[in-house]
Design a protein around this nucleic acid. Structure first.
Length: 561
RNA sequence: GUCCCUGUAGCUCAGCUGGAUAGAGCAACGGACUUCUAAUCCGUAGGUCGGGGGUUCGAAUCCUCCCGGGGACGCCA
């Protein structure tokens, strides 16, 4: 399922066997084999794969690296395989492997057999949860949420292909202080819109969207809520508004190609007593102490800069307390790996969250928090503040409207989460024709066009067993095959390092190789029918791989442009 | 002040756990369409990898100090 990894594994074992043999014969002296790599060299002259073990072993073995490399090469048993053309020692002591192109001719079979599953690495047997966006349900989705959504969903797709069992989760912050403020704002708007002269709370949600929500409430309830006790009225207002907001958020994210498995309510953690439970537990374990009437978690025990309040002096738990209970719940649900995507402004919470997990007896390494740097929004060179309260923010819906889902998702995922992202809407619109996403989609559409053209000529892609892939000998053809073969391993690396942007890079590279091939060789109308068939096959597996990679990114693969 | 991210070609950014001669797109310049979509391709030019020191056989990558940019430091979430 992953040809590159199979080759790497084979070469790694071959080198290890040679080392053991050399030791047995007293040629190289060492205690244990260091962690070496089989990697793809940058320079083609250095072969298809290179191994650095000789340099790493030099000190331990007290031998020159090149000498070690030569002994390894001599002791390597390659009699069972035919695809290795040459092995040489080069540079400081690299062992370079030169492969014949034979192995590439097995790639089409694999891709065709797996079809839309090509890229899948096989069941890893581990459950992973990705929690992302988790925007406050008191407002619209902004650019930061959009970036988090694109990143989280793509990462989840990558993990799935890498072989994990993945669940996507949205944590609904439907409790706490912000909900109180939200309630105050709704109350004020309701009273105002029913003809009462009341002031709007100073730090309330002043956005137009809150007004709209209250108008809907009035359509629904009229002014009947005025007769209710304030407490009860407030409850109805908040419940209605949250429901409306969450429905809206869910729909926006679906328009962005994101569908969650679980929507987890913070409120349920309070209602079920789980928040109190976890605080009590930490207290029993001596991780919580009282100071100034509040309860503090000793996060400094776990490398944090300062302790953190879990229970305020007014007796209410903090967001952090709920978050501890939430993450405990995640692990209790049996996830082997828990990934959160947070904005960089939350970086201060990482240490204490991991500390809390340790205090609860969970391995903090099973919790990964992927921090993404914030998005700054520009319009025509002027910065747009992303304040939820003023209502001047550009929403996810507006973004999709302006630049399109495909371009938006590709744009956000193209960059490493670590990079600060300046997003100028004017520029994005102006450059939408040059956007790299079109370059990739165009490659896919072009291939589809070849097949449409073939059909009108009465040409069909024959079954695989009637095609001889060895007809593919041109450099552009072989490079394309090689790139296609890389896809599963790219998925693997992207999953392991939580780097979904690698897939954006990959698909750009793949498209470039296709365009390059397309411009120098013809597929159809070739006098050599066997070559035409082989090229049709190459086009077919290129199309499959392009589409699979685009699907991972949440970008569509149009058949026509 | 402490902590996180960041500084690579004119601009926007890649560079997998340290590997051999640092890459791509845009912009610039010069070429390629009677032939499967020119939203494409080919070529040229463009670099003290912010700076100093260190570790290493080997550093854009790791450590340290300094300089610049962004962000966080609340009994908010």
């Amino acid at each position: 399922m992953n040809p590159i990894q199979e080759l790497k594994n084979f070469l790694e074992n071959t080198v290890k066997d040679a080392l053991v043999k050399a030791k047995d014969e007293g040629l190289i002296n060492y205690e244990n084999i260091p962690d070496f790599v089989i990697e793809v060299p940058r320079e083609k002259e250095h072969g298809d794969f290179a191994c650095n073990v000789a340099m790493l072993l030099a000190r331990q073995a007290r031998m020159a690296p090149r000498k070690i490399a030569e002994i390894i090469v001599e002791k390597m048993d390659l009699s069972k395989v035919s695809f290795i053309n040459k092995v040489e020692v080069a540079g400081a002591g690299f062992i370079n492997f030169f492969l014949s192109v034979e192995w590439l001719y097995d790639v089409p079979l694999l891709v065709q057999k797996m079809g839309e599953r090509y890229g899948y690495n096989g069941e890893k047997g581990e459950k992973v949860q990705v929690e992302f966006v988790s925007a406050n349900p008191t407002g619209n989705l902004h650019m930061g949420n959009a970036r988090g959504g694109a990143l989280g969903d793509t990462l989840a797709n990558v993990l799935e292909l890498a072989g994990y069992k993945v669940e996507r989760e949205f944590y609904i912050n439907d409790a706490g202080n912000q909900i109180e403020i939200f309630g105050d704002s709704l109350e004020a708007r309701y009273l105002q819109l029913t003809g009462h002269d009341v002031p709007f709370p100073e730090n309330g949600y002043a956005g137009q969207d809150v007004v709209e929500t209250v108008k809907n409430i009035i359509v629904h309830y009229g002014d009947s809520l005025l007769n209710l006790p304030a407490e009860e009225r407030r409850k109805i207002l908040v419940e209605y508004a949250l429901n409306e907001k969450i429905t809206y958020i869910r729909r926006s994210l679906e328009n962005f190609g994101i569908v969650y498995d679980v929507w987890f309510s913070e409120k349920t953690l309070h209602e079920s007593g789980k928040v109190k439970e976890v605080i009590d537990y930490l207290k029993e374990q001596g991780y919580v102490y009282e100071k100034d009437g509040a309860l503090w978690f000793k996060s400094t025990l776990f490398g944090d800069e300062k302790d953190e309040v879990v229970m305020r002096s007014n007796g209410l738990p903090t967001y952090f307390a709920a978050d501890i209970a939430y993450h405990k719940d995640k692990f209790e649900r049996g996830f082997d790996w828990v990934i959160n995507i947070w904005g960089a402004d939350h970086h201060g919470h990482v240490a204490r969250m991991k500390g809390a997990m340790k205090a609860l007896g969970y391995d903090p390494d099973r919790l990964d928090i992927l921090l993404m740097q914030l998005v700054r929004l520009y319009r025509g060179g002027n910065i747009v503040r992303m304040s939820k309260r003023t209502g001047t923010t550009v929403t996810l819906d507006e973004l999709i409207e302006e630049v399109g889902k495909d371009a938006a998702r590709f744009f956000f995922v193209m960059r490493s989460p670590d990079s600060h992202l300046d997003f100028d809407l004017e520029l994005a619109k102006k450059q939408s024709q040059d956007n790299p996403v079109y370059y990739v989609q165009y490659a896919h559409a072009r291939i589809c066009s070849i097949f449409r053209q073939a059909e009108t000529l009465g040409i069909k892609l024959p079954p695989l067993e009637e095609i001889d892939p060895k007809k593919l000998k041109e450099a552009e053809e072989l490079e394309l095959l090689r790139k296609i073969a890389d896809f599963p391993e790219e998925i693997n690396i992207a999953a392991r390092s939580m780097a979904p942007h690698r897939i954006a890079r990959y698909v750009l590279d793949l498209a470039a190789l296709f365009h390059s091939f397309y411009n120098s060789h013809r597929v159809l109308n070739h006098e050599d029918k066997a070559l035409q068939d082989a090229r049709l096959l190459l086009m077919d597996i290129t199309r499959i791989t392009l589409k699979n990679a685009l699907t991972v990114l949440g970008v569509s693969a149009p058949e026509q442009m």
